[in-house]
Design a protein around this nucleic acid. Structure first.
Lengths: 191, 191
DNA sequence: TTGACAATCTAGCAATGCTATATTATTATA
DNA sequence: TATAATAATATAGCATTGCTAGATTGTCAA
């Protein structure tokens, strides 16, 4: 019987509409504007329906974050494959990282700044996060022996650049120079 | 007449008690537990009194952050002056940075993660933030020509390490190696 | 002593996350 | 096909939050 399939398909679709609405509202008006009532209105269902999809509001934010990690992985891979010369790859990925973070501030916030229980270096890491990490690891591999350490550090540096620029604590005008410095550091001292 | 003085002294003291209570509660139970009602209870005044000291809750968080920047500056300076050898200075400051961030997670959160309107690279930067930046700048100066860029990047790298470790996205066990990598990068490629 | 003003409190609003319970739609059974 | 069971959804409400209008108390000068 296709009825059950149709139902679960419709359910999945409704769930996606919740996540999509959350993302759009967050990007337009900030995460504070993403309330359960607002989302319920948006998908044209009553509030308790949302709780049949997600345990609580944080789980909705986490779902947006996971979507962000999927897109992020694609962005990194494309930036990497679209450049030639190992060093250029590094630079372009770094630039793409910052562009991604600053072009979708709410998405990036869900991924890296808002409190989540999405862990990385643990058992039970979600596959989307693992894939994102791997995409970055692939980029730095040619430049280092201890891939894990260098990837973590490269990621941290990029996140730091994004976070500080985001909060206006670093001059936007000098972004290129900071990126150049990070790239040179990986090239020269990844060992 | 010393009456006015006494009054403004008592007022300042009460204000400080608010900030101190906010910090203690945040560190013990997280920032969500820092409510106006809770703070009012703590200082044994009614809620509206808090609004005669601070415009809103965010301003209280910001006050804690500013206190954090003051302590942070001291920590950086001490780590720097307590080490010999320019390269050792860098390493010890980096370690002190991470120790500070992870030892006072709520304080660090107020300083760097929670939304604030404390800006850096702008006119009207609070002196406490400027001093913190200068303390870090002093540490990297021997290793670079463009002090501003290197300081920003060093700071970003350290913040990234702290933030990712905080949220469990990087292996705590490899902290030392990541720090070593950042330090080497500054030494080698600050130019 | 009284009247103005400052300091403080009581009480309440609107919004939030979340849930117990009522209601409606859907399916399976007699 | 009529009805009972169950699933899907809605209504209504609770407790908590940040914040504030308005009442009340205290303090000081005339």
């Amino acid at each position: 019987m296709g009825i059950a399939e149709r139902k679960s398909r419709e359910r999945a679709e409704r769930e996606y509409r919740i996540v999509a609405a959350a993302r759009v509202i967050a990007e337009r008006e900030g995460w504070d504007a993403v309330t359960i009532r607002r989302l319920a209105e948006e998908i044209e269902y009553s509030q308790p329906v949302l709780y049949s999809h997600f345990e609580n509001r944080d789980a909705i934010v986490a779902a947006v974050a996971v979507e962000g990690f999927r897109e992020f992985t694609v962005v990194v891979r494309e930036a990497a494959s679209g450049s030639s010369g190992r060093r250029n790859v590094l630079k372009n990925v770094a630039m793409a990282y910052l562009a991604f973070a600053l072009r979708h501030p709410a998405l990036y916030e869900a991924m890296f700044i808002l409190p989540t229980d999405l862990r990385f270096a643990e058992a039970g890491t979600r596959p989307e996060l693992h894939a994102a990490f791997q995409a970055l690891a692939a980029v730095v591999t040619p430049f280092c022996v201890d891939v894990a350490v260098v990837t973590e550090t490269f990621w941290a540096a990029l996140h730091g650049l994004a976070a500080l620029e985001r909060s206006g604590r670093v001059r936007p005008s000098a972004r290129g120079e900071r990126i150049a410095l990070v790239v040179r550091a990986i090239v020269v001292s990844g060992k």
